[in-house]
């Protein structure tokens, strides 16, 4: 059992969720409530990671974050090492390929709020920020929760992009999914089986607990 890989996966999933939560709130809200000309294009771009092969996505991430890219060069100068094949580089890729999992459910959550309720918040004298805090977030939370759970679970399970952008550096970029692949390559079926079962248990547990929790809270609100 590769505990380092498991811990790395959990760490990556945690930070991805932390970064994507505000992005999901702002982006989901924007797409739910605002009408603008490029909205269709933005929605399509957000969905792109769902349909692209991980290799294609990973390739572009390598190009965008590599040493010869503006981002990569800046990173090299600022921190003295390159961005790709590091945990930070993996986190950047993880945040981007999880955008559809975070923004889509959040958008649906905000869209479920009747327009009249947001108007009522305004006529009750609530500023947009106060309305977000007191009315929109409490009502959109099932969508936001789904967004965060999906992001967390999906980060644990992602393989192709991690391999392309991070490689398989123990303690740095070797996530549990990569570790399982390595075990299988080394014909260690026993080790692969243990880690696979662990990953299934963690993913299933996360989703089950969240759904149970949301059902209970949902009943209280209904």
């Amino acid at each position: 059992m590769d505990w380092t890989a498991l811990f790395l996966s959990l760490r990556l999933a945690f930070w991805t969720v932390v970064i994507l939560l505000p992005v999901a709130i702002l982006g989901g809200r924007l797409l739910a409530f605002r009408q603008f000309r490029a909205k269709g294009l933005v929605e399509a771009a957000v969905m792109l990671p769902l349909v692209l092969p991980p290799t294609v996505f990973g390739f572009y991430m390598l190009v965008a974050l590599g040493r010869n890219s503006p981002i990569g060069a800046f990173w090299q100068q600022a921190f003295g090492h390159q961005l790709v094949f590091t945990f930070e580089g993996l986190l950047v890729a993880s945040v981007i390929f999880n955008l559809p999992f975070a923004i889509q459910p959040a958008q649906r959550g905000f869209e479920a709020i009747p327009t009249a309720l947001r108007e009522a918040a305004a006529t009750c004298g609530m500023s947009p920020l106060r309305s977000l805090r007191k009315v929109e977030l409490p009502l959109a939370w099932p969508g936001l929760l789904t967004a965060m759970v999906l992001t967390f679970a999906h980060t644990l399970g992602e393989f192709g992009i991690v391999l392309m952008v991070g490689g398989s550096i123990p303690g740095e970029t070797r996530t549990i999914a990569i570790a399982i692949y390595d075990r299988v390559q080394a014909l260690d079926m026993q080790g692969a089986a243990v880690m696979s079962a662990t990953l299934v248990a963690i993913s299933l547990g996360t989703i089950a607990v969240t759904f149970a929790l949301s059902a209970r809270l949902g009943r209280r609100l209904a």
Binding site: A116, L117, E119, A120, G125, M126
Partner: peptide
């Protein structure tokens, strides 16, 4: 709207 002192009662109630 939130800076106007207009109390509004909506057709659909619109209670939180």
């Amino acid at each position: 709207a939130w800076r106007r002192r207009a109390g509004m009662v909506f057709q659909t109630y619109a209670l939180f």
